[in-house]
Design a protein around this nucleic acid. Structure first.
Lengths: 255, 255
DNA sequence: CTTTGACCCTTCCCTTAGGTCATAGACTAT
DNA sequence: ATAGTCTATGACCTAAGGGAAGGGTCAAAG
């Protein structure tokens, strides 16, 4: 009877040593004996069993089931295989559905086409372009602006407008809420929305602490120049101040 | 902006609260804000994102990938979907192969038909049957014998003969080795084979300690009646004694 | 005769996508 | 005020191993 140490058997069967350790631990394949120094020693029967294990494993069968099948000799091996076949066929059906769903989604997605590098600012008129650029530079400086511009290219015009609209809506909501406590959950939830909206505009670069101070900086900008906080084109008294306090509270408690 | 606590959002989306905790922890879906008492508060944007997550999850996509896709807005969403589709189609091909393999194996297995209750002892002549039964009863007593008989039914005649032949071979090998130290690895490896062979005959019922003493009992039986340890029909002097010592050593060091 | 490199051992932590307690604090209704 | 529901965190569990730490063993080469 030939004897194999772990690595020998592993290489013979094309599995890792760790796998054999594992099979030993779960009792799926134990060495025939242990040497005096606790080395695992396998015989040819173990090699044969391992080959069977690997066969069933290729059929995507869980190790516990493999163990049951092998230990029951061929009691309901046939049955188990037929059951397993059913399982696999069901899985195949599921995958078919997935492919269908994906195909549909791909079609939808192709409808909303992506914006290319050259098309980034197409669709906005030149005045809008200048506004966007100027705004960005004021807020984040030259260097950050370049990162932002790169990021903006990954947005489609539709998405861009969607974000603009959401920002308008947020400001409207916040105006309505400006009589409330600026730390209330309702207000803070809206501020969170504003925060996320801004991040979608300017990207998520920078460390958390950087983002925190950027956000607070933006709040101060709102106070210093009330044109930023127009709602429906109008300046509202006290609103910039409310906003700044609410944003500061958000930065302090959430960031 | 509506706000949702964990359970509310969970029920709305049909997932568990724990899932939301999990998504928060891995940063896939964080609450918009935390209340003063650290409660997670989600807004409608989060509900929307969760729905997207669930959509991709249904496509069997890992959560990390989902996160990347959603955070890149639609940058290479299209590409990711097409990649994913390829993956699924490959998986389908693999399953096809599995089904083929299983079908082949089932055919092979059907060739070696199982033994039915009534056929258990068919194929052996009556003398053999009596030998088998007597041997079992002597070794394990009436009660154990019934268990064993039930177990034997799960073996086909082919397997049964295979086991008999293996036992003959083991005895032959052991006879050759009987000049060696009974505790050597080579001998012990062969004893291990004998142990496993016996267990395949008589089943694996009983606690480890029971099996240990049964095995030692069998060794003593071999010494007391040398007809059990015939090799090629002949009694060999000193062999039963060698066997008993080797078996006792095995029981002590391995069981 | 010792050292080196290859091998062996066990134990612990890590992975996915959460499930299942356990414990403690918070909210709501009677 | 107390009971019942909700929330939080943390630890442990799943399948099938991967990886590494820390320590013991063996054979050949110096």
């Amino acid at each position: 009877m030939k004897k194999y140490k772990v690595k020998e058997l592993a290489e013979l069967a094309g599995v890792s040593v760790k796998t054999l350790h594992h099979y030993d631990k779960i009792g799926l394949l134990s060495p025939a004996i242990r040497s005096e120094k606790k080395y695992r020693l396998y015989g040819e029967n173990e090699l044969y069993r391992l080959q069977q294990i690997l066969f069933y494993k290729e059929l995507a069968m869980p190790l516990t089931e493999i163990g049951e099948i092998l230990d029951n000799r061929n009691f309901d091996q046939l049955n188990a295989l037929m059951e397993h076949k059913k399982m696999i066929q069901n899985e195949k059906l599921r995958l078919d559905e997935l492919v269908n769903t994906i195909d549909k989604t791909i079609l939808q997605l192709k409808g909303k086409k992506m914006i290319s590098d050259k098309e980034l600012y197409r669709g906005f008129n030149s005045e809008e372009i200048e506004n966007i650029k100027a705004e960005s530079k004021k807020k984040f400086g030259e260097k950050e602006f370049n990162t932002s511009e790169k990021y903006l290219k990954s947005l489609s015009k539709e998405q861009f407008e969607e974000l603009k609209n959401e920002q308008k809506e947020i400001f409207k909501n916040l105006l309505k809420l400006s009589t409330e406590d600026n730390g209330s959950e309702t207000v803070q939830l809206e501020i969170a929305r504003l925060y996320q909206n801004i991040r979608k505009f300017w990207g998520t670069h920078g460390s958390p602490s950087t983002q925190k101070s950027e956000f607070k900086g933006l709040a101060k900008l709102y106070v210093s120049d009330s044109s930023y906080t127009k709602v429906d084109g109008e300046i509202h008294e006290g609103f910039p101040d409310f906003l700044e306090k609410a944003m500061a509270h958000f930065a302090k408690t959430q960031l």
